[in-house]
């Protein structure tokens, strides 16, 4: 980890500003994030569709439950790009062992329902602590930040649903003959409908980079604070120009 290669400005930020920075970061890597998400999520989605032909809700439950898994390649990419390491889609996929395996079992079980999922996902992926250390670590990281992190999860969850409903409304507006907003139609949608399937997985993919990046920036900004990255970077820059021959006590004070 070379702090000088950070692509973000290492400032001490409050939690909300950290989430905002996440949005800026997500914009930078958005397209790659969406593609990675679809590459991982689409086959699993198709497979569960084939296996559970009758009950559509099971597919959707699977899709929702496996979100942390789908988000992992994006998080992996961000964690490398953050330190200026170029990660294309293919390169990220080829490192699958590094993003797929670490703590994946706990992430999909006991850690799945945490509202701070986004902020703590980097802990599982990058630090890979044992379970009792995990709780200590997340407690330290979550101090002051877990509140905002929870709200980020809540807001982005709603954004996802709003996009889905809005897309539906747009369909209804453009093709009024094909869509009737009745209960039977809703039931049909949740059962088996190709358009609905495609649009829901697309919407999840579109929002995911923002959620990953917000959580990741919450995590990074907290570490900047806890470990004084901003100060360390400044001091190291200062030392880089230092030649031992120069007198440490400089006479150049203007005071």
């Amino acid at each position: 980890m070379q702090l000088s290669k950070l692509i973000i400005e290492p400032r001490v930020r409050n939690a909300w500003a950290a989430i905002d920075l996440g949005f800026t970061l997500a914009r930078q890597f958005w397209l790659r994030g969406v593609i990675l998400y679809l590459i991982v999520a689409a086959p699993i989605f198709l497979l569960s569709r084939l296996l559970t032909d009758e009950a559509g809700w099971i597919t959707y439950l699977c899709l929702w439950w496996l979100k942390p898994l789908f988000e992992r390649p994006i998080l992996f990419l961000l964690s490398r790009e953050l330190f200026s390491e170029k990660m294309g889609v293919r390169r990220t996929l080829s490192h699958y062992k590094q993003w797929l395996l670490p703590s994946i079992f706990s992430v999909l079980t006991i850690r799945r329902l945490s509202t701070n999922r986004g902020m703590y996902a980097p802990v599982s992926l990058l630090e890979q602590p044992r379970s009792n250390e995990y709780y200590k670590r997340t407690k330290v990281l979550g101090y002051k930040f877990s509140n905002a992190s929870t709200w980020a999860t809540v807001v982005l969850y709603h954004v996802e649903s709003f996009l889905a409903i809005a897309l539906l409304a747009l369909f209804a507006f453009l093709f009024p003959d094909h869509v009737d907003m009745t209960l039977s139609w809703w039931a049909e949608v949740s059962d088996n409908n190709l358009y609905w399937d495609i649009s829901s997985i697309l919407i999840m993919a579109v929002v995911a980079p923002f959620y990953c990046a917000s959580g990741f920036m919450l995590y990074i900004c907290r570490r900047i604070e806890l470990e004084g990255w901003d100060i360390e970077i400044c001091f190291r820059d200062w030392m880089r120009n230092y030649t031992p021959s120069a007198e440490p006590v400089s006479g150049g004070s203007n005071v």
């Binding site: 001490v12 004084g228 030392m239």
Partner: peptide, 30 residues
């Protein structure tokens, strides 16, 4: 950086503070 260090905005641990301060040891008075 000096001010942020003094205010200890992020509540750094004592070890970490020492680690960072030692970086610029050669610059400090002997």
């Amino acid at each position: 950086a000096f001010v942020n260090f003094a205010l200890n905005k992020g509540r750094m641990s004592a070890d970490r503070q020492a680690e960072i301060a030692e970086i610029i040891r050669p610059r400090l008075p002997l």
